[in-house]
Design a protein around this nucleic acid. Structure first.
Lengths: 200, 200
DNA sequence: TTTATAATACCGACCGGTCGGTATGTTTTT
DNA sequence: AAAAACATACCGACCGGTCGGTATTATAAA
């Protein structure tokens, strides 16, 4: 078995994910992670140089997973595509449920650390550009009003971030998928050139 | 002089605000706060029962300040009122600049602590209801489409939260006041019954 | 007004415990 | 046997909170 090392590493990361999500980064000790993973401290520090290191690794893993999930999202037209994206929300909340609180924590650290801030700003701008391109496509295909794509993308991203934050804070406070699709529809009736009969 | 006590308390809170904003809650020790405030640890624990207590006190102060700023916000019509609110953003960023990172931290803690979550959810719902009422007024005065007020309020609050988060993370990444007013206008063209010529 | 009494505000040394990280030894893989 | 993977014991710094005691201020009796 050449995999033993990888298995151990994976177990450590899974344990860390669970504990970080439950109690937060600061409230979770390396010892706890080791215990949860059924692994010694030596093993931990063999795989990760520091506590922060595993945190960063977790975040990067999540970004990759998110990007994968967004690969096949194009629908017949842009409004439909945007609306379709809201269907991903429960999926995101389900599969990445444990990652979300960690992301929030990562944002927090970004506020205090220049390096981390740069790291988190990059994927964020990536998504903003992605949406801006979608808007442009929508304008090209004639389903969207003529509008500043960057500004519109900004609105969408802000909305998404806001919904995400609230979803993290108060998961059972609302049916977030429903809220998200309603929000997009409201937004769309402002963005859409005319009523194009949006439906799920 | 019974004021000595109040002065001390104020100094402690100001010092804590500064340090929390710079380094974050966890990275700031009570000793540091005392040193920054030029006060002993005994004085600190005389005024605040715990480190968490001063954190909560800081948050509550901020909410009160925010509410005060929102007192006189009604304009000639609802869309104008909403648009006007975006003018408050630089003010918020200016006066509450030091509070904002703390707020993010508060959200984070809320995710792990039931009590704190309840405390933060209350004002948040307060604002949601406030906006819902504004929407209803707008419908009544005929400047807004017929729409589910709660859903529309949700969109606005989500948007606001999203903008706030981004503003905290990347204060100089954009002219957030401009972004905010553009966002509201985009949203409004979806909410507004017809083009009513919005302008600042 | 002065003095006695009580209450409040403040001081700073100290403690129990935790935590991230290391040093060193043992087992497993190559 | 050499190297990688893992285990155990331990260190030193730090941190939130306590506590016995001391100023300072308010209240009231003399």
């Amino acid at each position: 078995m050449q995999q033993r090392s990888e298995i151990t590493r994976k177990r450590i990361m899974e344990a860390a994910t669970r504990l970080f999500a439950n109690a937060g980064y600061n409230a979770t000790s390396v010892d706890q992670i080791c215990k949860e993973a059924g692994v010694s401290k030596g093993a931990f520090y063999h795989h990760f140089s520091s506590k922060q290191a595993i945190f960063v690794a977790l975040f990067e893993d999540w970004i990759v997973a998110l990007d994968d999930g967004m690969k096949e999202m194009h629908k017949e037209n842009i409004p439909q595509t945007l609306l379709y994206l809201t269907n991903m929300i429960p999926l995101i909340f389900e599969t990445a449920d444990e990652h979300l609180p960690i992301v929030l924590e990562y944002w927090l650290l970004a506020g205090h650390d220049e390096v981390i801030r740069a790291a988190i700003l990059a994927p964020y701008r990536h998504y903003q550009d992605l949406f801006a391109k979608l808007i442009e496509e929508g304008m090209a295909e004639g389903t969207l009003k003529t509008i500043n794509p960057q500004a519109a993308a900004q609105v969408i991203v802000s909305l998404a971030v806001g919904l995400l934050i609230q979803g993290i804070l108060d998961p059972k406070g609302a049916d977030w998928q429903k809220v998200a699709s309603e929000s997009i529809q409201i937004l769309m009736n402002g963005l859409g050139k005319e009523d194009i009969g949006l439906s799920l």
